[in-house]
Write a protein that binds this DNA or RNA. Structure first.
Lengths: 150, 150
DNA sequence: GTCAATGCAAACATTTTGCAACTCT
DNA sequence: AGAGTTGCAAAATGTTTGCATTGAC
C-alpha cells in the first residue's frame, strides 16, 4: 500500500504540480504539498476519504473540502489519474508507478490487476482515426474472474 | 432520442425480462412494464432521473425508488447495460440498438460516439489470457475531440 | 392468501459551495 | 496589499432504505 518514496519521484511530481500552479497564478500551499506527498505514498488506487483518514493518522490536519478542491488540480497537471471501476465514488491513482496500464477487475474478490496498455493505446488510435476523432486518453476495463478465484 | 419501437424489440425484451423475473419468483408489475417500455424508447444513453421525467411527461406515475429498484433487474436480465462516462451518476443504455460497441466521448461537446467493439473484444481476450483471467465483459472508452469540434 | 412491490419520506454517501478568516507571492 | 486558499458547516446530488399499503400470482 504505502511504500518508500524515491525522492526522484517526489521531485518530478512536485515540479509538475508547481509548474502547473505557477502557470495559472495559483499557490503552492502547505496543504497542497502535504496532499501531494500523501497521494504519492499510495501505490494502489485511492479515494478522497482515504487520503483524509491517513493524513489524520499521520497528524496532518486538512479539511475534506481542500482534498476535494485539490484532487482536480492534481489530475489536471498529470500527477494523478482518475480511475473508476463502476462505483459511484471517485478513485484515483498517481502516475509515477509502472507505465501506462489498464485494469482488470475480478468480480469475485474485487482485486484489480493492471496490465500494459500499449496494445489498447494502438487500438484507440486505430478506432479514433476511423471516426476522425482525436484521442487524448482512454480507459479500458475488463471484468471477469481472476486466476486465484477459479 | 426517442424512436419508433419495433414490436419485435419489445417482444424480445419483454420475454427476457419476464423469464428473468419468473425464474426468481419476482413479479411483472405494471410499473415494471411501463419502465421497460420507456427504457426501450430511449435510443441514447439515459439515467434514472431522465426516465422519471419522461414518464411523468407521458402521464405515467412512478416513484423514483421504483426506478432505482428496477434498473438493476433490467441490467441483470441483460436488457440494459450500465455505461459510465466518468461522471458520478449512473448511465444506462438498452441492448437492442446496434451491436456490441464502445464509446468515444468528445471533451468539447460531450457528444458520445459509438464504435464497434469487435477489436476491443479480441484485445480483451488476448490480455485476459496473458493474465490467466476469465473475461466476462469490458468497457473501452476514448476521450478526445470529435471531428465537428476541431 | 401470500409474498413481493410500490410510494413516500427519511436516511445516506459523496461531493460541492458560501463565506469569513487566513496565507502565499 | 491582494488574490487565491482554507476550514467549517450547510447545501446539493444521486441513490438507498424502512415501513405501511397495494397488487401480482
Amino acid at each position: 500500500m504505502a511504500r518508500t518514496l524515491s525522492s526522484d519521484v517526489i521531485d518530478r511530481a512536485e515540479a509538475m504540480f508547481r509548474e502547473y500552479l505557477r502557470s495559472r497564478a495559483l499557490k503552492y500551499t502547505s496543504e497542497r504539498r502535504t496532499l501531494l506527498l500523501e497521494v504519492l505514498r499510495n501505490n494502489e488506487h485511492f479515494e478522497a476519504e482515504q487520503l483524509l483518514i491517513s493524513m489524520r493518522h499521520a497528524g496532518k490536519r486538512i479539511a475534506k473540502a481542500t482534498i476535494y478542491r485539490t484532487l482536480p488540480l492534481l489530475v489536471d497537471c498529470g500527477v494523478v489519474k482518475q480511475v473508476q471501476f463502476g462505483e459511484k465514488l471517485a478513485r484515483y491513482e498517481h502516475t509515477f508507478g509502472q507505465g501506462p496500464h489498464d485494469h482488470m477487475i475480478c468480480l469475485r474478490c474485487r482485486r484489480v490487476i493492471e496490465f500494459d496498455s500499449a496494445a489498447a493505446a494502438r487500438l484507440r488510435e486505430t478506432e479514433a482515426a476511423r471516426h476522425r476523432f482525436t484521442a487524448h486518453s482512454h480507459r479500458f476495463q475488463i471484468w471477469g474472474v481472476c486466476s486465484q478465484c477459479r
